[in-house]
Design a protein around this nucleic acid. Structure first.
Lengths: 339, 339
DNA sequence: GTACGAAGTGGGAACGCTCCCATACGCCAC
DNA sequence: GTGGCGTATGGGAGCGTTCCCACTTCGTAC
């Protein structure tokens, strides 16, 4: 609780040692103009000798900027570290921020965390902006943060959102998948959909329906099962589908993990892929290359999503208050052995 | 570059609205003693009305504390997100810090990062302390940070380290594994070791040798292969081992992923596990439960490691300058189907 | 020789908070 | 009434920066 003693040199000390004023020393540090070569060298030497490092708090206090950006991931560690999607987004965000000379701060919104601690951190101007990655709808965090004047960009659109967001165009991607299946002559196209409380789940299903309509195929409830994006649930859903006794010659799965599960269930049931049943996934995750047969899937780029989020955030720190239109990232189909 | 306009209420404004002095308002916010009920209520109401949030920079400037701790992971995203070990450590760290009311800040030391940006961030008193998770030896980051008076705890001991660290007792764990194999009558115990530039690799090998010696078995170079901790390398190493034409009735693998690869190679080669060859892994990662047969392995607890790191760091912020002795976490063997 | 602009410099003020000291206000004992 | 003590309170000082203005110096044009 007590205040630790100061040991670190201050700018004033640097200036004194260099025989210049505080202002000049500051100018040297901030790459300033209008400093004589002589003064610059003296200051640089003093900095090196004293091991001076600027105090971020003092600087932030006056500049009102920290040059740091928070990425908040509102998912369990299990998911964060299990799904390659997150690694991709983080890579994209990291490289874009590094280019802009901003520090990335990763915050995991954990259950263990005291309620409100995260809000506090984000609103106390520790960071210049917040990137939020959550795949669920019910979070009010972005609104609470915005209320304090901190810019926020959400990755993965929320249900109603008029807010700044970047998302993959799930509807278009799913349409693409269904159009492909219809294009190779399939007429009984089933789907293993994602959870309906997640945007990705809902809109990929929406795209599936739109795709059927576009191909002049009927929408049949018996061809729809809902999973939870896990591999096990894909396997189980596929079994359910087969157990219903309806014709199925193709399945569109809302993500690759469920598609991998479906492939396993099909193989167990003695159905050949793609001859008897064609399978399409969504994401183009690493697993899509290592299934048997390799998975045809809708390619999305998490890295690009990350970079877009950063671009949007930096934009809105430059022009505060001006809401950006949300951005949808298009997808394309990667055809492999499963269709 | 320009300074954004101030819009947020300050403590002074809160105090004015509540009809009290700045000091009293500050006392209320910091849970202070010696405040009358009347003043407390007035201040709390003013805070709510104005939506006041304390400015972290101003506070840090005077208290010299930020109540935030950085966790630096000096690995590629690929590894960080691929190995469940990291998720476990982060979970442990996160919960321990939450209990201590500290914010966890995750920094990934990426290649994309400007050289020095990380150092700058860590030394500019953004954080009260640094937890470093790196499995390689060659990093001087901890020394550089310590030189600026910021406490550091390293997870996974470095080669020479006299510094504060927490590590799993790899030697003891490997000895345990070998003793177990010897105990069930195996006499030709091979090892698929880890890379020699990583402590875990070296010391698990060291433990392997010690285990052989303790069991009165000869150490035979032809029974040693080095992998890189990846599943593919485990498979390849096992093939190498089998190809050498020496008797092998057991394999100790330096981690579970390589053990999983080894199991696959053994199955491909028509060797039965555990009848022909017994296999032991290290880590007790999730994959150990899902191999065929389930893997006997040395259990370590990444969560515990995380919690220990936090405890040590908080200790050294309380008593600065006093180096803590490093802590070794013991392991135990989990026997499953592969032995 | 004077006037003027550009270049370089020093240092006051301010950022928003916590710490701490001086003061005010009871209340009780004498 | 006076003295003394504990409890609340207000506000000055200071944390280490950046910003900006006023000042000096020097070179150039007249």
């Amino acid at each position: 609780m007590t205040r630790p003693p100061r040991t670190r040199p201050t700018l004033e000390e640097v200036a004194a040692r260099a025989g210049v004023g505080r202002g000049t020393a500051s100018r040297v540090i901030n790459g300033g103009e209008k400093v004589s070569e002589r003064a610059r060298l003296a200051v640089e030497q003093a900095i090196a000798e004293l091991g001076y490092v600027p105090n971020a708090a003092a600087r932030a206090l006056v500049t009102r900027r920290t040059d740091a950006v928070a990425l908040v991931i509102a998912e369990s560690e299990e998911r964060v570290f299990g799904e390659p999607f997150f690694a991709g987004v983080i890579r994209g965000i990291g490289s874009a921020l590094a280019q802009a000379d901003r520090q990335l701060i990763l915050l995991l919104a954990q259950a263990s965390q005291r309620r409100g601690a995260l809000d506090d951190y984000l609103t106390r101007q520790h960071v210049d902006g917040v990137l939020l990655l959550s795949l669920h709808d019910d979070d009010e965090l972005p609104d609470r943060i915005r209320a304090h004047g901190v810019p926020v960009v959400v990755g993965g659109r929320r249900g109603d959102a008029r807010e700044d967001f970047v998302d993959v165009d799930n509807v278009q991607g799913a349409e693409l998948a269904v159009a492909h299946l219809a294009g190779i002559g399939r007429r009984h196209i089933a789907t293993i959909a994602g959870p309906s409380d997640m945007v990705a789940g809902r809109s990929r299903f929406e795209g599936y329906v739109a795709g059927l309509v576009a191909a002049d195929l009927p929408v049949d409830d018996r061809l729809v099962v809902r999973g939870d994006f896990g591999q096990g649930s894909g396997e189980k859903s596929m079994r359910t589908l087969l157990g219903r006794g309806v014709d199925v010659d193709a399945v569109f799965c809302a993500n690759d993990l469920m598609a991998a599960g479906a492939l396993r269930a099909l193989s167990d049931a003695g159905r050949r892929v793609p001859e008897d049943v064609a399978v399409v996934g969504f994401e183009d995750a690493p697993i899509a290359m290592s299934t048997n047969p390799p998975l045809t899937t809708v390619h999305q780029s998490p890295e690009k999503m990350g970079r877009e989020m950063v671009a949007m955030l930096l934009d809105s720190t430059r022009t505060p208050g001006v809401a950006q239109p949300g951005r949808m990232l298009s997808t394309h189909l990667v055809v492999r052995g499963s269709t």
